[in-house]
Design a protein around this nucleic acid. Structure first.
Lengths: 237, 237
DNA sequence: GATTTTGTGCTACTTAGGTAGTTTTCAGTA
DNA sequence: TACTGAAAACTACCTAAGTAGCACAAAATC
């Protein structure tokens, strides 16, 4: 039992940014977290089982999972969300209980907390006030999607690329995080484009002296140039 | 009091498709609906007051409201949602209580139910189990947005146009609804394109014999042709 | 009923970005 | 240390779709 308790404290700490668990006293937190069990998914694994997310719910503890759509005809991809610590799967299923045709793939070794959907629903029925946390999270994701749509419609690829970079710069360290070790292909899918086009833009950014790249690695060396670029395009917020 | 009761019954009926009010006994329904007051907005009016939706919440009873984003630089638009009977405003604000930079415009004379946000929150605190209804609605909208994104990335304009038409065909009457009286410009904004391009595609559809148009009016005369077209593009679901 | 505004149809032009293909570089591993 | 496969770099090409402009018709406004 002592062991479990320290586990819970560990989760409490590592999931401090998790909207679902916000404003929760320790007792409630423990009652919820005791329903979960920890799992590890290996790197670069697809989670293709369509119905899995109707019966199980997951919270990511560590590692990245991309949620993406695939177009069978052209075998193109779009990454809808790059999920990480504190994110859920599948948001859509937990909200409306319907099937969600979407793909998930781990980009790192991923640790998750798993709970049978039914148990989670039971818990929520007993603690309906915590639906609010789910609402808040859904709101965040809606906003992200709305921005995605306006970006695709209003902004060209170079703008979208620069915005993606700036979004993922750590405010304190000024370093690129979360997407710094992705291939050009993965970066392309994050902004709804293709490898070749993104590479073309990356070459331009390199020549401008704003970034430095090596194999599966992208670093920002002059944030100011990127910000100036967005300002020129009137896309700087 | 009698008068009020008949009002409530009228709302109950006309808002039967409203997710927020689903699975609600009459007593609860009345306790909620009594917080609202009816309002009428004239046709073609912009609701620009930025903070309005932070303090007031609206349910549409009749008429259409488009929710859209505007790019100041290019003065381009995208319509994110074409809201109508049973839809809410502003979903984003009710979910996370944050400001939402978005535009609303009435396309018809619109009747809404208005409630001060604070009162609605109070009601929800007393009836937290109805957060679930909000969750369900949010899920629906997330799905719509996800589809929007994949369509923009995977499908060309003609496909997106045909999909838009088919989505808005009444299953029973086979007639185009909700978007049948829009200008080409408004149709363009619904699929993230421009007037001229949409017009080009509409001419093609007319020549194919699938649709008939007149000023601000679009009718489908051969649904089969449109469905065949999508099948050929492998975009038919 | 005259004037203005708005929607539609079309033509001609431009271009960003998608596509295809080759070469080079690099990391893992046999 | 050589082999292999993936990522990256670069070139050449193509086209869907955005842009600009104009003419005409239907509505709306005066």
């Amino acid at each position: 039992m002592k062991n479990k308790d320290t586990d819970y404290q560990r989760y409490r700490k590592s999931l401090s940014n998790c909207h679902l668990l916000e404003n929760m006293d320790d007792l409630t937190f423990n009652s919820l977290i005791s329903l979960f069990s920890e799992q590890t998914w290996p790197k670069n694994t697809c989670l293709v089982d369509e119905n899995r997310f109707l019966c199980k719910f997951y919270i990511i503890i560590s590692g990245r999972v991309k949620m993406y759509q695939l177009d069978e005809t052209s075998s193109k991809e779009v990454t809808l969300f790059l999920l990480h610590k504190g994110d859920f799967m599948d948001l859509f299923c937990i909200l409306d209980g319907l099937e969600h045709k979407v793909y998930y793939e781990s980009l790192d070794e991923v640790k998750v907390l798993e709970v049978p959907m039914e148990n989670l629903h039971d818990w929520f029925r007993k603690h309906p006030e915590y639906y609010k946390n789910l609402l808040f999270y859904a709101g965040k994701k809606l906003r992200t999607m709305e921005n995605y749509i306006s970006d695709i419609i209003f902004a060209n690829i170079s703008t979208r690329l620069v915005k993606l970079l700036l979004r993922n710069v750590n405010k304190d360290s000024k370093n690129l995080e979360l997407i710094n070790d992705l291939s050009h292909k993965e970066i392309a899918y994050l902004i709804g484009s293709t490898r070749a086009v993104v590479n073309r833009q990356i070459q331009k950014l390199k020549k401008s002296g704003s970034i430095h790249t090596s194999r599966e690695n992208l670093q920002i060396i002059d944030l100011g140039i990127l910000i100036e670029f967005l300002k020129k395009e009137n896309k700087y917020e």
